[in-house]
């Protein structure tokens, strides 16, 4: 039987992959995707929490569950919207990097330090 913890573990794996992507990859576009992965991991967790409540019988049975579902879904949709906006801004910034350095390697940007 697939349950809450399966989803949470999957979400955790996705999140860790995202974090590792940010830490290890040098291509700005890939890093951007890794960040998206982190947000999606969070979204997955929220959806799982709505479908399989931690306390109670599970499923959406009463008004409280219904309220939690609306609440959770609102959160998920807004996170998706924000992720899209973030990509918009992020791509512009990456393009600016490319314009200046002729490269999208984030290690090129290391003039400011100390």
């Amino acid at each position: 039987m697939i349950g809450l913890y399966h989803f949470l573990i999957l979400s955790g794996v996705l999140f860790s992959l995202g974090v590792l992507g940010v830490l290890l990859r040098r291509n700005a576009l890939v890093v951007l995707m890794a960040v998206e992965l982190m947000l999606n991991a969070a979204n997955l967790a929220v959806v799982a929490f709505v479908r399989y409540p931690m306390f109670g019988d599970g499923g959406i049975v009463n008004a409280q569950d219904y309220a939690a579902m609306t609440n959770g879904m609102t959160l998920v949709f807004l996170v998706m919207t924000v992720a899209a906006a973030e990509v918009g801004v992020g791509l512009a910034i990456v393009i600016n990097l490319y314009r200046q350095k002729k490269s999208v390697n984030i290690e090129e940007a290391n003039a400011l330090k100390g």
């Binding site: 940010v22 040098r26 290391n110 003039a111 330090k113 100390g114």
Partner: peptide, 17 residues
């Protein structure tokens, strides 16, 4: 501190982690 502040974004992300 100055040496930790390498100027590389991945290192900063590692700090966050």
């Amino acid at each position: 501190l100055r040496r930790i502040q390498t100027g590389l974004a991945p290192h900063y992300a590692l700090g966050t982690l």
